[in-house]
C-alpha cells in the first residue's frame, strides 16, 4: 500500500455507521486493505472511461432490481453509455430520488459524460456503464459475488479508468 497508515483512516460519518451497524450488524464495514492507487496510463483525452453507480439505474424494460429483498440484490445492470435519460429508469428505494426523477444527471450524469466526450475532454466512454443497488446487507457476499462479477464485466469493456459513484 502506498504511504498508507491505518491511523490515516477517517470515518466521515462515524455516528451514522455505528447506528446502522447496531440495526444491521456487520453491514457497514471499514476496510484497511485498500488496493494500491492505480493511475491513468494515458492522458484523459485519449482514455476510455467507465462509470459505475449504486444508483439502481437501468434501461427501461430490463429486469428490475429486487428492492424489497431483505438482504439485497447482488446483481448489476449494463447501461449503454449512449443512452438518453428517457431510456432509463431507477429501481432503488434507499435514497431520495426526487431530484433524479427531474434530472437523472444528479445521480447518474450520463449526459454530462457524453458532453465531455464530445468536447474531447474524455477520449471515449466505455460502451456500457454499470449500476447496481447499494442496499446489500451481506458485505462478504457483496465482495465475493457482485463485486467480482462486476469487476469482470467492467474489465471486459477495456476502460483506462473508471468513475465510481455512490447514491
Amino acid at each position: 500500500m502506498e504511504n498508507f497508515k491505518e491511523t490515516d483512516l477517517k470515518q466521515l460519518r462515524p455516528g451514522l455507521w455505528a447506528t446502522v451497524n447496531e440495526r444491521y450488524p456487520g453491514s457497514m464495514i471499514t476496510k484497511t486493505d485498500f488496493v494500491p492507487l492505480a493511475r491513468l496510463k494515458k492522458p484523459l483525452p485519449e482514455s476510455r472511461i467507465a462509470f459505475i453507480s449504486t444508483a439502481g439505474v437501468q434501461p427501461k424494460n430490463s429486469l428490475p432490481f429486487d428492492t424489497v429483498h431483505p438482504v439485497g440484490d447482488y446483481t448489476f445492470r449494463r447501461v449503454p453509455s449512449r443512452s438518453k435519460p428517457e431510456d432509463l429508469e431507477i429501481h432503488q428505494l434507499k435514497y431520495p430520488t426526487v431530484g433524479a426523477k427531474r434530472d437523472l444527471n444528479v445521480i447518474f450524469p450520463i449526459e454530462r459524460l457524453q458532453e465531455l466526450t464530445e468536447e474531447k475532454i474524455i477520449g471515449e466512454l466505455a460502451p456500457n456503464f454499470f449500476s447496481f443497488i447499494g442496499y446489500n446487507m451481506d458485505a462478504l457476499k457483496l465482495e465475493q459475488t457482485l463485486a467480482e462479477d462486476l469487476a469482470d464485466a467492467v474489465e471486459a469493456e477495456k476502460p483506462d479508468g473508471a468513475l465510481l459513484a455512490p447514491a
Binding site: T97, G99, P166
Partner: peptide, 27 residues
Amino acid sequence: MMGHHFGVPRHKELQRRIILEMLDFLT
C-alpha cells in the same frame, strides 16, 4: 447530499464541475 452526488436538477455547470473534479482526481 444523498441522491444528489452530482448536484441539483438542471444545474449543468455544477454537475460538470463535480465530474471534472473526479476526473482531475484520477491524476
